[in-house]
């Protein structure tokens, strides 16, 4: 890789428990280029979120570390914005005010070059809400808008911090399939426009293939690590309908499914598979399901 933007350098993570340390991650190593979109996929409890939290700075790796633009990550910060699974908007603030809190924090104080005055901040908040198509409900509170809209505001809040890396922890996991598809389209648009570096955790094979430049498949915990990295060489912009008839796309899907269900299969473990009902991968999946049962 020509220049490494984000270097997740051989991190291991142990959590202390009364029965001795629990090894969650062992030697996870990943280098990412500027603007790259990487998905982390794996069975529940395989430490995907732990990787994300270490990159976010919310956890400190026991061994190894994370380097972003030649600077070691040792605490959380707005240059590594996180989109949480459950939106995590402040319920007592409107969509606008939620984004404003982030914008004020990042651009409000006299920091080098990144300062905005009041009018500029307002414009920037509105611009980011516009990016996620939330102009119409800017002044509504989270309990007045739908789940998908909340997640949009969460993304707008993260984008408004002008992060170097966008970290998304199953951002669309709680949404229905149709809304999820919309959100994926929006995310692809935004990624094409802004060229953020993105790490996204997902359970959804289609989502991973559709959005990613690379899919990082993780082995099962304890001591989870990267099992395989799949490079998705599909031209952008991508269209889900066209792709569903694309041999390469289906090959990539197959690869991921094979990894998850054959090499890393866990008896009794349920992985999101309901998406795969109307295409060629479905039969193999059904076989796996019956085997597991």
């Amino acid at each position: 890789m020509k220049n490494i933007h984000l270097n997740i350098d051989h991190i291991s993570m142990e959590f202390p428990t009364p029965d001795g340390p629990y090894v969650a991650l062992r030697d996870v190593d990943l280098k990412m280029a500027q603007g790259e979109f990487v998905s982390l996929i794996g069975h529940s409890g395989c430490g995907k979120s732990t990787v994300l939290n270490v990159v976010a700075g919310l956890y400190q790796a026991t061994r190894g570390g994370v380097v972003l633009d030649n600077k070691e990550v040792d605490e959380p910060g707005p240059e590594r914005a996180v989109v949480f699974q459950n939106h995590s908007l402040l319920p007592w603030l409107t969509a606008y005010e939620n984004v404003e809190l982030a914008v004020k924090q990042v651009f409000g104080r006299a920091r080098s070059s990144k300062t905005k005055n009041k009018a500029e901040m307002k414009e920037w908040i509105e611009y980011n809400l516009h990016l996620v198509h939330m102009d119409h409900a800017m002044h509504k509170r989270p309990d007045e808008i739908s789940g998908g809209m909340k997640q949009r505001v969460g993304i707008a809040r993260a984008l408004a911090m002008e992060p170097k890396v966008l970290l998304m922890d199953e951002p669309f996991g709680a949404l229905d399939a149709l809304t999820r598809a919309h959100m994926q389209e929006s995310l692809m648009e935004i990624h094409a426009d802004l060229g953020n570096t993105v790490i996204m955790i997902t359970h959804d094979v289609d989502e991973a293939v559709l959005l990613s430049d690379r899919i990082v498949m993780m082995t099962n915990g304890p001591a989870a690590t990267i099992g395989e990295i799949l490079k998705i060489d599909l031209p952008r912009p991508r269209d889900r309908v066209e792709l569903s008839d694309n041999a390469n796309y289906n090959h990539y899907r197959h690869e991921v499914l094979q990894f998850l269900y054959e090499r890393q299969r866990r008896p009794g473990e349920e992985v999101v598979a309901e998406e795969a009902s109307d295409d060629e991968a479905a039969p193999s999946l059904k076989v796996v399901k019956t085997e597991a049962a």
Partner: peptide
């Protein structure tokens, strides 16, 4: 207080 909200405040460095 919701742990996610605390994480938000950490990420924002409030």
């Amino acid at each position: 207080v919701d742990k996610d909200l605390i994480n938000v405040s950490k990420v924002l460095r409030l």
